[in-house]
């Protein structure tokens, strides 16, 4: 068996605000194999964003060990992370192509090469022809596609997504779910995806980590054994229903 790309073992994180301690993540332990799409699902305050930020190296953790990378898949924390947030956060004054290029500029990658790559990525996310538009000329869904292209420009090994489709309407969201699966299959990235949509988590994930709030706790680690490529027919699949019911039950919704 190949070594996991990410290994969390008893990871905890406590925040201190005004003298009070707040346990945001406790005892999170799971492995992620290279090329997996893992969904972290749970209610607000369950620590899923905290966990994501710990993976991004944006803040430390108090207990346990968190390791990313393996001998076959070395990981450079400075350039192997791509991030997508709930808001597209495109720079209003840059054209779409230049927005996608931002990480390449920060890392000082060769520009002519990156420019070609940015065009390819915009094609991958379905934005050919929009390279020279400004963000305000694009719909919310299209802006989020551009943000996904931006997260891939420096060819990171790990893409972290924090409720990337949470601000979109339901129809666009469904469409973006299919798009993400296609992009994931083509780019073969390892993706960790935070959501509070249970069906979204089961539909997208090769694995779903269920987190509960108050107190923060990792409740389950479910391998989603459903075939790829996936389509919406899958939602009527018996096992799909089993998985979602199991997660609803874990989160106390029946």
């Amino acid at each position: 068996m190949t070594e996991p790309f990410i290994r969390l073992d008893g990871v905890s994180k406590t925040y201190r605000t005004r003298g009070k301690e707040f346990l945001a993540v406790s005892e999170a332990s799971f492995d992620v194999a290279p090329g997996e799409l893992v969904a972290l699902v749970g209610p607000s305050g369950c620590g899923k964003t905290t966990l994501l930020k710990a993976l991004a190296g944006l803040h430390g953790h108090d207990g346990g060990t968190l390791r990313i990378g393996s001998p076959e898949h070395p990981f450079d924390p400075a350039r192997d992370i791509g991030m997508v947030f709930q808001q597209p956060l495109l720079l209003k004054w840059r054209r779409i192509l230049d927005n996608v290029l931002l990480p390449a500029e920060i890392l000082g990658l060769p520009m002519t090469e990156s420019r070609g790559r940015a065009r390819d990525l915009l094609a991958l996310v379905g934005l050919t022809g929009f390279e020279d538009k400004y963000p305000y000329e694009l719909s919310g869904g299209m802006q989020q596609r551009a943000a996904i292209a931006r997260a891939l420009i420096h060819d990171p090994k790990l893409v972290l997504m924090d409720e990337p489709f949470g601000a979109l309407d339901a129809l666009t969201r469904d469409k973006m779910n299919l798009e993400l699966l296609r992009i994931w299959a083509q780019s073969r990235k390892t993706i960790v995806f935070v959501t509070h949509g249970i069906t979204e988590a089961v539909f997208l994930g090769t694995r779903v980590i269920v987190l509960t709030a108050g107190p923060a706790r990792m409740a389950d680690n479910i391998v989603i054994d459903l075939p790829h490529p996936r389509s919406f027919d899958l939602r009527t699949h018996e096992r799909f229903g089993d998985y979602t019911r199991r997660i609803y039950r874990l989160l106390g919704i029946e």
């Binding site: 944006l58 956060l89 920060i106």
Partner: peptide, 26 residues
């Protein structure tokens, strides 16, 4: 946007890069 700062931080962007690429044009 704090998230935008996080994005630059994951890439180990410098303070000067944040200033010239994000703060000043913004």
């Amino acid at each position: 946007e704090p998230d935008l700062l996080d994005l630059v931080r994951t890439l180990r962007g410098s303070r000067w890069q944040i200033f010239t690429k994000i703060q000043l044009p913004g």
